[in-house]
Amino acid sequence: MADLTVKIKDLVLKNPVTTASGTFGFGEEFADFIDLNLLGGIFVKGLTLKPREGNDYPRMAETASGMLNAVGLQNKGIGYFISDIYPRIKDLDTEIIPNVNGSTIEEYVEVAEKLNEVEGINAIELNISCPNVKEGGMAFGVSCPSAIAVTDAIRKVYDKTLIVKLTPNVTDITEIAKGVEVAGADAVSLVNTFLAMAIDSKTRKPVLSTVTGGLSGPAIKPIALRMVWQVYHAVKIPVIGIGGIMNATDAIEFMLAGATAIQVGTANFIDPQVSVKIIEGIEAYCKEHNISSVSELTGALENR
């Protein structure tokens, strides 16, 4: 059997399949459907310093081969996560990776400081790409200086593996990736959702309460794949591929494009067992192609 483990700086994942923040709750929501211990990791729901109620309903719109969301980081705050949620999931045999958010650099730093103290949490994902909050979020991720500033500030207080989640809503994603690499990121994960919109022609109104939201699902996969490929060639740190992965073939394509690991997102809503099916599919692919270690796939794209 192929060795499925992958390394992202000091973070060791038993396999490259993780679940994307905001699409998998805190893992517990899926415990009736899969053995969570099989996963490489779980990027849990985005956390902020203080509790957030998120945006008004409607927060979701189905679109062709995808969906929009505008949840707006609803969560009970970092304190509640550490005291009430994490103790319930800490004994899972998988990496629990919190997704860190803030309206200001100070808020980001405070959340990261608190997580740095939590035993068992070996990595965080710095989210500078949420398109659904008025302050912070994507605003930090669309310009190089601000992306560098927030990464740099967090690097100073966070000792373990630091992953920075990038937005695709920029002119050149490789510039941002290179910037956060210099600022001390250990890895980048991409892409977050694409800023998008849905309109109800009958009512002539936007479907979402926030007018715009983030597009996810297979509709964005080819663009995400291209961005992962570009970033892989632009930076030396590992890339985690995200964007419309629905099955093992999609996951393998992302690895060939340069991803060390992948995140399964929107697909979890359609099939709560899909993450485990993807692990099985990657295993089968390795067997079929005589691959001894799955990490051989990373960036193994051949020339046409």
Partner: peptide, 16 residues
Amino acid sequence: NMMACGIGACLCCVTE
């Protein structure tokens, strides 16, 4: 309400 996941993961279907 409109839903995506139906199992409390996506937080799309909230009511106040």
